[in-house]
Write a protein that binds this DNA or RNA. Sequence first.
DNA 1: TGCTGATTGAC
DNA 2: TCAATCAGC
Length: 465
Amino acid sequence: MPDPVILWFRQDLRLADNPALVAAILEGPVLPVYILDDEAAGRWATGGAGRWWLHHSLASLTRDLEARGASLTLLRGRAETLIPALAQSTGAKQVHAGRLVEPFARERDSRIAEALGAIGATLTLHTSSLLTEPHRIRSAHGTPFVVYSPFSRAIFALGEPDAALPVPDRVPAVPPASDSLPLEALELLPKRDWADAFPELWTPGEAGAAKRIERFTTKALSQYGADRNAPGGETTSGMSPHLRWGEISPRQLWHAARAAGAEGQDTYLKEIIWREFSYHLLWHRPELPEVPLRAEFARFPWQPDAKLLHAWQRGETGFPIVDAGMRQLWKHGWLHNRVRMIVASFLIKHLLQPWQDGSAWFWDTLVDADLASNSASWQWVAGSGADAAPYFRVFNPILQGEKFDTDGRYVRAYLPELASLPDNLIHRPWEAPAEVRAALRYPAPIISHEEGRDRALAAFASLKE
DNA sequence: TGCTGATTGAC
DNA sequence: TCAATCAGC
């Protein structure tokens, strides 16, 4: 029997358009493996909501592989040790995987490549979860991009991405490793019942991803340019968790949007390119998750306050659009993009809480939590990142609510205690008559918008001194 | 992919 | 009185 080839799944839990899978099949019988490696990830080990998703996605991948004659080996521990040991014990000379951008993963992969080299084996990394590799794209000056628009033009200038690779009919494979664990042994599901409502919104796995993009391109894409900011209906693709776990590739999304021939496709492609831009930033600035990219923000006068942070996390700030968003996040593990900007702006600017605290909460509660997108987006709102929103751009949560959730549908869906308020008061319940307000059981605003805004502007102004 | 307050001009 | 416009934060 020829030597097996290790196919190491990381953030590309799919069989379609998977270059590592195609390369592995060409070289011999495949040993597909997934490793839960929390130690290497450290502080950025997958959060609670992500682990729920991962559990179901691995179950789906296991079924899909078995339908093609292969078994997924599941391991838990340090990949740095386990991958070379697996190569050693099976005689594998080749390991194929998709390239990762997270700093801890890059360091780990280079150590693994070295360890494999010492036993005569090779790690080959493929472009799998991005349109192009961050190190392959440079501005006209030969430097990394730090502004979105020219970056976006550079991506479009690459031309249409290659066609997606097909799903192999069969995956010739060797039996799973003898120490492969049952999925339950990874202990990915939450012990408490907080993820019970996730399945109302989500079907993790490659098949769920395919269904969802089909629904989006036939129903909402044509209106995407106009409707995508409204959080109250199904106006966005909802592909972020599928994309984060690699159940579909960005170029599959690209081609799906193009094939639909619908009006909103360029706007949608630009959102995919925002994600690409975040990965570009993380590749060139690995400190992105922890440190403000603009140096002056190191002396920002944050006012850390556990009570304020907690009120925001639980959706008890007294601003309906903020609270509805935070309840949606808790209930469904996801948040509409417009509302992400609103709640982030509120935490940072009105409450003066460090953006890292907001980023950490999203990391634990979002099913799509992704180190590049999450970190870049929080820095964007804080004004401390590359090409970030200017500091004086303070969202007014009342106006944002009235503009994008005009009929209050979104607020009523997640804050049933406000359902009886008329549309003209749904985003400003404190203006309701006192007896109505008393019956609502909804908190008064934690800070007035005007006071929060003035305080934020003063804090940001202090950076210039 | 802001918001606010001042100003202007139509009525 | 109010919508439209615009500068400054």
